[in-house]
Amino acid sequence: MPTSTPMSGASLAEPRSVLVSGASFAGLATAFWLNRLGYRVTVVEVAPSLRRGGTPVDIQGETIAILTSMDLMEAVRERTLPPRSFAFKDAKNTTLGEMAHHPDDEAGPRYEIHRDDLLEVLSGAIGGDVELLFNCSIVAIEERPEGVSATFSDGSRHEFALIFGCDGNRSNTRRLVFGDGEQFTHFMGGYFYLKVVPDTGLLPPNSSEVFAVPGRMAMLNGYDDRTDIGFGFRTAGEIEYDHRNKDQQRRLIEEHFSGLEWKVPDMLAHIGDDNNFYFDRISQIRMPTWSQGRITLVGDAGYCVSPFAGLGGSMAIIGAGRLADALARHPDNYAAAFRAYEEGLRPFVEQVQERAAIDSVQMLFPGDEAEMAERDRKLAFGDIGV
């Protein structure tokens, strides 16, 4: 795994010196490709180490092709999880509809890998070839004709030819370059909680179960050694809460789900009082453009598709691969490369976002009785589009 090392600044940008903000899937994959293209790459990450935890990642289609071209697909296959079933349940735990996930289906091979394992694969691939600085973030960006200047949180200032924002749906890079990030946030009418705990025995390994009543959803993912506990609730509009206040977020879940049937009481008992969980509004990032001058965005920072699309990690890897291809085709013209990257990827992003905003959310947790009836009708006919 790469380690933090002191960075040597320069008064003027070296033509091949670039900065990546964020060390998750988008940042690590982008750093890999930039290094392969011959750039001198620095990655800054505000966290003290790689951000671990979260649900597994689906690897299929174009993502397989990109990981294969990175010589990483074999490492992914070695860590692939067993196929997992998916069932919709009612309050008495009766199965309303189900589907089996197979490695190969009509869409081609499909793999699932724990998020931490994929992080290890990607971080190992950049090794010591990329400068990786933890506990570090960008606080100011100034672009000039000959390059772009970044001031770091330690007060130091460095020059780069290009900057790549790969820092998630609350992107600091997006805020610094494009302005208030809220203008690009498309709220999807709800909030989602996820906690990974040791095996709870609430469901068999290699299976997922979902229970819903109008406006509320409880989900379990079972693996050999752990269980994902998920809750989601719908709202008419955004609610006031502090995204840093974990106690407040736990209370929101308890208030919304206390008194529900199925396995919900046992799930709530596993919430505990630690802060190792994810809670956020269900939203997408929709921007008129992902680039400005010498800065461009990759992954959730520019086009978050929401947790319910099931393609967040894959979209980051696809985005990095498409960007690398554009830079390779336009090696001496970053503006043309950024334009080709966006024109090629945007139609796919918008298609996935539209599907997630309508089909996935309504299927997983219907907002009212009408949506619930439509979901049940689809289940009866085996039309499970998640």
Score class of each variant (00 low, 15 high):
Cys304Tyr: 05
Asp247Pro: 00
Ser314Glu: 02
Ala309Cys: 12
Arg250Thr: 07
Asp274His: 13
Gly310Met: 04
Gly293Asn: 13
Glu240Ala: 12
Phe308Trp: 14
Gly293Tyr: 09
Asp273Phe: 00
Asn276Asp: 14
Ile253Cys: 05
His243Thr: 15
His256Leu: 00
Gly259Pro: 10
Asp242Phe: 12
Ile317Leu: 13
Arg251Ser: 13
Asn275Val: 03
Phe277Gly: 12
Ala316Thr: 09
Asp247Cys: 03
Gln249Thr: 02
Arg281Glu: 15
His256Ser: 11
Ala301Met: 05
His243Ser: 11
Arg234Tyr: 08
Gln284His: 08
Ile253Asp: 02
Phe233Trp: 15
Gln284Thr: 08
Ile318His: 02
Arg234Thr: 10
Ile253Pro: 01
Gly293Phe: 09
Leu260Asn: 03
Ser291Asn: 14
Gly293Met: 11
Glu240Arg: 14
Ala316Ile: 04
Gly299Leu: 05
Asp280Phe: 13
Gly312Phe: 01
Ser306Gly: 06
Ala309Glu: 12
Met287Cys: 04
Gly312Trp: 00
Arg244Leu: 06
Gln292Gly: 05
Arg250Leu: 11
Leu252Phe: 07
Gly299His: 03
Asn245Glu: 07
Pro288Cys: 07
Leu297Arg: 05
Glu254Trp: 03
Tyr303Lys: 08
Gln248Asn: 01
Asp266Gln: 15
Tyr278Thr: 11
Arg286Leu: 12
Gly293Cys: 11
Ile285Asn: 02
Ser314Lys: 00
Lys246Met: 00
Gly293Ala: 11
Tyr241Gln: 01
Val298Pro: 02
Val298Gly: 07
Ala236Cys: 01
Ile317Gly: 03
Asn276Arg: 09
Leu311Lys: 10
Leu311Asp: 03
Asn245Pro: 01
Asp247Trp: 05
Ala236Thr: 10
Ile317Glu: 02
Phe308Leu: 15
Phe277Arg: 10
Leu268Gly: 11
Asp247Gln: 12
His256Met: 08
Ser314His: 04
Gln248Leu: 07
Phe277Asp: 04
Ser314Asp: 01
Lys246Asn: 07
Glu240Trp: 00
Arg251Trp: 00
Leu268Ile: 08
Leu311Ile: 09
Ile317Arg: 01
Gly259Ser: 10
Ala269His: 05
Glu255Ile: 09
Thr235Gln: 14
Ile282Gly: 02
Ile282Phe: 04
Val298Gln: 09
Gly232Pro: 05
Gly313Met: 00
Ala269Ser: 13
Glu261Gln: 10
Asp273Gln: 13
Gly272Ala: 14
Leu260Cys: 08
Gly312Ser: 03
Gln249Cys: 10
Arg234Trp: 06
Ala316Trp: 04
Leu268Asn: 07
Phe257Gln: 05
Leu268Arg: 04
Asp247Leu: 12
Asn275His: 13
Met315Asp: 02
Arg251Thr: 11
Asn275Arg: 13
Pro265Met: 08
Glu254Ala: 10
Met267Trp: 03
Phe308Gly: 06
Leu268His: 04
Phe277Ser: 10
Phe257His: 10
Lys263Gln: 14
Ile285Val: 15
Cys304Val: 01
Asp247Gly: 15
Gly302Tyr: 07
Arg244Asn: 09
Ile239Met: 13
Asp300Ile: 08
Gly312Pro: 07
Ala301Val: 06
Pro288Gln: 03
Ile295Thr: 15
Asp300Trp: 00
Asp274Tyr: 07
Ile295Asp: 04
